[in-house]
């Protein structure tokens, strides 16, 4: 199932939390060879994890993480503006209706339905938090994955060539794109909404679409 969690909630689920940071080490340090910091316990965390982000996790059962994304508002300190502004001609993106998502991670062996489920969670946040876009940096490999699950972003800028190309993009999932992603994930819209409501509560879960 999809879980929407902040640090205080993750602290109550240390198994889920630590498998997330371990799977991030496996993906970003071991597989992709990025210069990320991995601690003695094998967990990958950075300065943005200390800024109280919102995480979306795929709970694979057995206290294990199956995949995750990390969200921060672009009005505050965030990774895209502090490290990737060059991909947008040096211009920071700062808007209350745009959140950045970073550290899109899949656990080893996680199927394509997990990637689709994580995109679907992004769709829930877009619609129910009154957002216009999600902003993210991705490499050539993720670009393929996004295309395969039917959720390609609008590219603002790129650097590098071939396998090494990284890009900055905006997502605004249309209703059709969300339906496509939900089918890929094998999750009904009703179930996705239930998971969202579980995290954010009935009172505050049903912003009306603009």
């Amino acid at each position: 199932m999809l879980r929407y969690m902040t640090q205080d909630e993750l602290a109550r689920r240390p198994g889920l939390r630590d498998t997330m940071f371990r799977d991030r080490a496996a993906q970003f340090s071991d597989r992709l060879g990025w210069a990320v910091a991995v601690d003695a316990a094998g967990l990958e965390r950075d300065q943005y994890d200390a800024l109280d982000p919102l995480y979306v996790l795929w709970d694979a059962g057995g206290d294990r993480h199956g995949g995750s994304r990390r969200f921060l508002p672009t009005t505050g300190r965030c990774m895209v503006n502090e490290h990737f502004a060059h991909l947008n001609g040096g211009a920071p993106v700062s808007s209350p209706v745009i959140w950045e998502c970073t550290r899109f991670c899949l656990a080893p062996g996680a199927g394509p339905h997990v990637a689709a489920a994580l995109m679907l969670a992004g769709g829930e946040l877009l619609e129910r938090q009154g957002l216009h876009h999600l902003l993210g940096v991705f490499d050539a490999n993720m670009e393929r994955i996004y295309r395969r699950i039917g959720a390609s972003p609008q590219v603002l800028g790129s650097a590098g060539e071939g396998r090494d190309r990284i890009s900055l993009g905006l997502w605004s999932l249309t209703r059709q794109a969300r339906a496509r992603v939900a089918r890929r994930a094998g999750i009904s819209p009703a179930l996705s909404q239930l998971w969202y409501r579980r995290a954010f509560g009935a009172e505050n879960s049903s912003l009306q679409p603009a």
Partner: peptide
């Protein structure tokens, strides 16, 4: 609110 950035109803 310091730990979150999404709007919150006081009852939560």
């Amino acid at each position: 609110c310091m730990q979150h950035f999404q709007p919150v109803d006081w009852k939560r």
